[in-house]
Design a protein around this nucleic acid. Structure first.
Lengths: 195, 195
DNA sequence: CACATCTTGAACCAATCAGTCCAAGATAGA
DNA sequence: TCTATCTTGGACTGATTGGTTCAAGATGTG
C-alpha cells in the first residue's frame, strides 16, 4: 500500500482534531492519535509533524471551521442584533448537540491548559479567543444602536458565556439548561436595545 | 525524622491542591506532587492515598473552602439581591486576582477533563457544580422579588458565567475584562428586579 | 518487466509514568 | 538506656510516553 498518497488527509486531520477535542492535549498519546486516524506513528510524524505541530494544525482547523459559522450567524447583526446573537449561540449549541462530535470546545480546553502548553500553542489559543471577541465587537457595533461601551461589554460577555457552554456541557448540562444560560444574555441585549 | 507526624498535613494538602489547580490532573505527576508538598512519594501514597484519592480530597477541600465564601457572599440575597450577586462574583474575582493562588478554577478544570477522569472524580465534579447552582437558586428565590422561573434562569446563568471566568482568566483576560463580563449579568439581574 | 519512489509496520530509544517495597533512622514510652 | 513503633527516602518495577529509524513491500512510470 504505497507509491502515492495512501490516506485521506482531511479525514485524518478531522479524526485527530476530534481526539484532541474529546480528551485534550495531555491525555492524548501518539498511540491514541494513531488509533483515531488509522495512521501509523511514523506516518503521523512524517506527514503531520510531531504531536505539537499536529495539535496546532487541529486548532487552526477548528478555528477556521467554526469561525466561518460564527461569521455567518453574525451577518445580520446590523439589522437584527438580537437574532444575530441568538444565531451566534446556536452555532455552539448545535455543535454541542451534534452526536458526531464531542461536547465541550477545543479552544476552551486549550485555554484551560495554557499553563502547561507550549508557548506557540498558548499564543494561538489566545489569538483565537481574541478573534472571536473582535467578531462580536464589530457585529454589535454595526447597527449603531448600541453605544461603543455597551457593544464592547456585550462582546466580552458573549465570548465568555460562549466558553462557559463548553464547561457546562462537559459537566452534563442538558440542552435546555444551556439554552437558559444564553437566554439571560440574549434578553439582556434585548433590554439594552430598548429606547 | 520519624516517630510521630512529621509534616503539616494541611499545608501538604494545600500544596497538592494548588498543583492540581494550576496544571490539572493529567499534567500533574507524583513527582510534581512530591516536589510541591515536600513529601516523599511513599509518604504521599501511605498518608494521602494514591493520585486519584488525593485529587478527590483536594477537590473536596477546594469546594469547601470557596463554598463557604460563596455562601457568605449570598447571605444578604433576600434583602439586596444585586449586591449579593456582585459579592458572589467578587469571591471568584478576588481569587483570580490573588497572586498566592493560580488563576482558573479547579472545578472548571476538572469539568473539562470529565471524559478522561475516573467516574468517582467526575461525579464529584458534577455534584460541586450542582451545589453551586442550588446555592444560587435558593439565594435568588429568597427575596421573593423574582419569579421562580427567573430565579432558576439566573442561577443557571450565573453558575456558567462564574465558570467562564476561569477560562477567560487562563487566556489572559485582565481583571477589568473579567469585571465587564460579570457586569452584564449583574445589570441584567438589576433590570429584572425593576417593577 | 524493472526501476525509482513512497508508505508502512515494527522495532527501538531514553525518559517518565504510577505504584510498591524495605532498610535506615528517629521518636516515644518504659 | 532499651525497645517497639512509625515515618522516611531511595531503589525498584513494569508499563507507557514522544520520538526516531529502517527494512519490507506496494505502486506508478518507463
Amino acid at each position: 500500500m504505497a507509491g502515492k498518497k495512501q490516506f485521506d488527509m482531511d479525514a485524518a486531520l478531522d479524526a485527530a482534531m476530534t481526539q484532541f477535542w474529546r480528551e485534550g492535549y495531555a491525555d492524548t498519546s501518539l498511540d491514541d492519535l494513531s488509533r483515531a486516524t488509522g495512521l501509523n506513528r511514523s506516518s503521523i510524524y512524517s506527514s503531520l509533524g510531531g504531536k505539537d505541530t499536529l495539535f496546532l494544525r487541529c486548532l487552526e482547523r477548528y478555528a477556521a471551521r467554526y469561525g466561518e459559522k460564527y461569521d455567518a450567524a453574525l451577518a445580520c447583526a446590523a439589522a437584527e442584533p438580537v437574532a444575530a446573537l441568538r444565531a451566534f449561540f446556536d452555532v455552539t449549541l448545535e455543535r454541542i448537540a451534534d452526536p458526531e462530535v464531542p461536547d465541550g470546545c477545543l479552544i476552551a480546553q486549550s485555554a484551560m491548559a495554557i499553563p502547561v502548553l507550549s508557548p506557540g500553542v498558548a499564543e494561538h489559543t489566545r489569538k483565537a479567543l481574541g478573534l472571536q471577541r473582535q467578531r462580536l465587537r464589530t457585529a454589535l457595533k454595526a447597527g449603531g444602536r448600541l453605544t461603543d461601551q455597551h457593544a464592547e461589554a456585550f462582546a466580552e460577555h458573549t465570548v465568555a458565556v460562549n466558553q462557559s457552554l463548553a464547561v457546562m456541557s462537559r459537566a452534563g448540562a442538558s440542552p435546555a439548561q444551556l439554552r437558559t444560560i444564553v437566554g439571560v444574555t440574549v434578553d439582556a441585549l434585548s433590554q439594552a436595545l430598548r429606547p
